[in-house]
Amino acid sequence: MINTIEWLAAIFVGLVALNIFVAVVLRKFFNTSIPDAYDFGRMFLGILIFWGIAATSYRGGHITVDLVWTAAGPRMKRVIDVFATLVLLFVVAVQTTMLFDKVRGTWADNVQTYDLNIPTWPFYAVAWFGDVCAVLLIAIRTYRLVFQPELLQEARPEQKADE
């Protein structure tokens, strides 16, 4: 499941890059543009952000500043990890609720793209589903941090440096 989420995030990175590349080439060399390129770009970027959150949340591979964590003992490190993951779970769960409201609002208001009049709510729904996956993965990570910490014992960069 985690690998699938990471692959989906990677696909959305590719879609964002492809949209930008094709739009620039068409504008520069052919004096034309992709209809709704801006709308597609911003919606794909939104999708990418939420799927990226899902991809990094389980592994804890996001950027962190862990000066206190590094100085703490093993027991305190675990307490900090559990607390931080619970805070992240709460924030992402609230974000998911608000994003669902956005999906419902764009659907109810029949918001469409400018050029092609494509409904935008499916794009928001895909982003929301990425956020739902993030909540599920963070909940799994929290459970494992509390009850099965040995399952999350991936080597951290500072651990590799000590070896």
Rank of each mutant, 00 (worst) to 15 (best):
R104D: 15
T64N: 12
I49Q: 04
R59Q: 14
F44I: 03
P35I: 02
F123G: 13
V13M: 14
V79C: 07
G14L: 08
R59S: 10
I5S: 04
F44Y: 10
A10W: 00
G73A: 01
E158I: 11
M76W: 07
E163R: 11
F129A: 10
A127S: 06
F40L: 13
M43S: 14
I138T: 15
Q95W: 08
V16T: 10
V126A: 13
P149I: 08
L45I: 13
G73H: 00
D101H: 04
D109P: 01
S57C: 01
H62D: 14
Q153S: 06
D109Q: 13
I138Y: 09
E6V: 13
L152V: 10
L89S: 01
P149R: 08
V94L: 11
N117M: 09
G105Y: 12
A161Y: 08
D66Q: 06
T32M: 08
G73T: 09
T4M: 09
A37C: 02
P35G: 07
G46W: 02
A93I: 06
G60R: 03
A161F: 06
L116G: 10
A10T: 14
F50T: 13
I80F: 00
G61H: 09
Q112S: 05
A54R: 01
L88D: 01
A155M: 12
L152K: 06
V92A: 03
N117F: 07
R42A: 04
W121P: 02
F29R: 11
P119C: 03
T120L: 13
L116D: 02
F29C: 06
I20P: 00
G105H: 13
D36E: 02
L99V: 12
Q148P: 05
V13D: 15
L48I: 04
N117A: 15
T70G: 10
M76R: 15
R27P: 01
R78W: 03
F83M: 08
A55T: 07
V111P: 05
F44N: 01
G52K: 05
L26T: 11
A17R: 02
F44Q: 12
K160L: 15
A17M: 13
T97V: 11
P122D: 07
T96L: 07
R59H: 11
F123L: 10
I34P: 07
R141N: 01
I49F: 13
W7H: 12
W69N: 03
W51G: 04
M98I: 14
Q153G: 10
T106P: 05
P35K: 05
F123S: 05
F50V: 10
V146Q: 07
R75P: 00
W51S: 08
V79Y: 08
L137F: 15
N110G: 01
V132Y: 05
F129M: 11
A93H: 02
W69I: 08
G52Y: 07
M1D: 07
G46R: 06
L15S: 04
L88V: 09
F129P: 00
C133G: 08
R144F: 05
V111H: 13
F21I: 15
